[in-house]
Design a protein around this nucleic acid. Structure first.
Lengths: 234, 234
DNA sequence: TTTTTTCTCCCCAATATTGGGGATTTTTTG
DNA sequence: CAAAAAATCCCCAATATTGGGGAGAAAAAA
């Protein structure tokens, strides 16, 4: 009896906040495991900040679910029958780029993480017995941030490092002006255009570029541009 | 009086857990702002899971601090006098690769994030009035994970995506030879070198490049190279 | 098989870049 | 403050690139 009363109060407070202000975050859940889906639904539904607009065991009708429930955040499992959560996310992002998608899964391997991120995931939560995490992640994502479970974050950082660390063997110091000029070169501007854009004489541009070439150990614009991009100098 | 008693109890419990089991995480803090350092120290010292082994306003003696206090986790500010937290972290990682370094700073720009990650940061916490976050981050890092503040995580994901996701707004068809020539241009080769490498005449290279420029709607090598890279045409 | 690309090559002339010398004035830094 | 670094400008000449034509052979597509 007390439980029912509590539930009714919770519901009332939800309806209230929906009517008074739209601060609750509309969430749609995709999760094929029935137990997990139901327990997660229950927890989310009891949260004050989350309005669970719908929960589904299958993402084939994901677009319809978006159209019908127009969620702010989608909580998406990866492994599901018929269509994977990542595929569903790609479809969703194509039509509704503003809907935030939070991946929740047991997979912690680089391949899944990589694919999810490339497909535009706004967060990646490893399945966790503690449901608080989900609400926290939803709130963070809704606020424009991203949520990564610690192990996922560690892997993302490791991938990130392996991508970039090798191509920064030596620190090259370019002056402010040199960076500016190099930035113009990357935009495909000619000496004349650069001189115009930076409000300096043609000959000055020439000088700067000579210095840049010497510092980067190159002797042509294309080389300098490539080096600038891969060293993230600009 | 009650406060002192509480403190003594906290201390006792700490000593106890130190003697009984080494579950407390040894932390060293670098933070130049006196107020922040002291309040953060106080909070960390009162935590049950963290043993604050030392706190410093300057990272010049970082290596000495590591040797003396052998921390598990270092909480490192970026902006400090004499030496930046990132430089200090690089030194620390070189000698003690197992020490986890958690960056805590006000900087949220891509450049600082990028440098910190490349230098091997295990986490990146934006300065936060809520000190709980720090303890949580320390625990996560100690457990082998990483902690990223939501805004930082969002930026990391965005950087990650921009690196790997191929944006091809207009599908541009380059022939095999054209791709080959463009590839050479990206490597910084001149017309003459390309002719040599592809075993074709200079004038042929010229022709191909003219065609490439027309297809890419550019009219200089740097532009073509940039476009080729960002379109992942090569 | 005919047509269309693709790849190959050539000419010429205008323009742009690169490399080699300088020099002067601010700014920054020790 | 004195020295170093950065930013600004100039000259000259060699080289490279770009843009405009055109044209033949080979490969691919219709």
């Amino acid at each position: 009896m007390v439980m029912i009363k509590t539930k009714v109060y919770t519901l009332l407070s939800k309806i209230n906040s929906l009517i008074n202000d739209k601060t609750m975050i509309r969430v749609v859940l995709f999760e094929d495991n029935k137990n997990l889906r139901e327990s997660l639904s229950m927890y989310l539904a009891s949260s004050d900040s989350v309005w669970l607009a719908g929960s589904f065991s299958d993402a084939r009708n994901a677009l319809w679910a978006m159209k019908t429930h127009h969620p702010d955040v989608v909580l998406m499992d990866i492994q599901m029958p018929h269509i994977t959560g990542i595929e569903a996310m790609i479809d969703i992002k194509k039509v509704y780029p503003n809907i935030k998608v939070l991946i929740q899964t047991v997979y912690e391997d680089e391949d899944h993480i990589f694919k999810a991120i490339c497909a535009g995931a706004n967060g990646y939560v490893v399945k966790n017995p503690n449901p608080e995490i989900y609400v926290q992640a939803i709130e963070e994502v809704q606020a424009g941030g991203s949520h990564l479970s610690p192990n996922i974050a560690a892997k993302v950082l490791a991938m990130f490092q392996s991508q970039f660390v090798r191509i920064q063997p030596t620190f090259i110091e370019l002056t402010q002006r040199e960076k500016e000029v190099l930035g113009c070169m990357v935009k495909g501007m000619s000496y004349k255009m650069i001189a115009d854009a930076c409000d300096i004489k043609f000959s000055t541009v020439h000088s700067h570029i000579k210095n840049i070439y010497e510092k980067l150990h190159v002797n042509s614009a294309p080389e300098a541009v490539v080096k600038a991009l891969e060293m993230r100098l600009i």
